[in-house]
């Protein structure tokens, strides 16, 4: 994947920083907006090289729509994960069947891999142990299928259909 132009990456960094500033101040006073924009421009100039590789292409409407659709999906998976944890903790026999399994992913992008690893860590019974290339080593609290294919179907496949659009 080639890098976007410097100006596009710089503008994207400034936009993200400014949106965070808007949330943090939670006011629309012109003085605060001016100083926020000023600081966004300075910090963006210092950090845009490490912040993003694709620049304004991240703000494509299709990506944003999928990202917004991903939020309720992810929150639902997270609540189910916690009910699952609650069941395992409170059940007197402690029904766990742990192990480390291997998964494959189709994502190529580093940011996409990070998002997938984070999603795996926060959803039912799995936590990412290590990532090597396209192989994920995952500690699974209740191993149903120890093969690579089966584990991928159970763990990574449900998120990839969203993350593929958002990050690829």
């Amino acid at each position: 994947m080639e890098k976007a132009s410097k100006i596009s990456r710089y503008l994207y960094t400034v936009i993200v920083l400014f949106v965070i500033w808007l949330f943090l101040t939670s006011s629309l006073d012109p003085q605060e907006l001016t100083i926020g924009l000023l600081f966004s421009i300075i910090i963006g100039a210092l950090t845009y090289e490490v912040f993003t590789e694709r620049g304004l292409a991240n703000l494509h409407p299709r990506r944003i729509a999928y990202a917004i659709a991903y939020i309720p999906y992810f929150l639902w998976a997270m609540i189910m994960a916690n009910l699952d944890v609650a069941y395992r903790v409170l059940h007197p026999k402690r029904p766990i069947n742990p192990g480390i399994v291997e998964c494959k992913t189709v994502l190529k992008n580093n940011a996409g891999k990070l998002a997938l690893a984070n999603s795996i860590t926060l959803t039912p019974g799995t936590i990412t142990l290590d990532v090597k290339g396209d192989r994920y080593f995952i500690h699974w609290i209740d191993v149903k299928d120890a093969s690579v294919e089966g584990a991928s179907d159970n763990i990574t496949r449900p998120f990839e259909k969203f993350l593929k659009v958002i990050f690829e």
């Binding site: 766990i96 069947n97 192990g99 480390i100 399994v101």
Partner: peptide, 11 residues
Amino acid sequence: LWEGSIVDKYR
């Protein structure tokens, strides 16, 4: 790992 663990692909 716990002795009840069944697979360890990482090892």
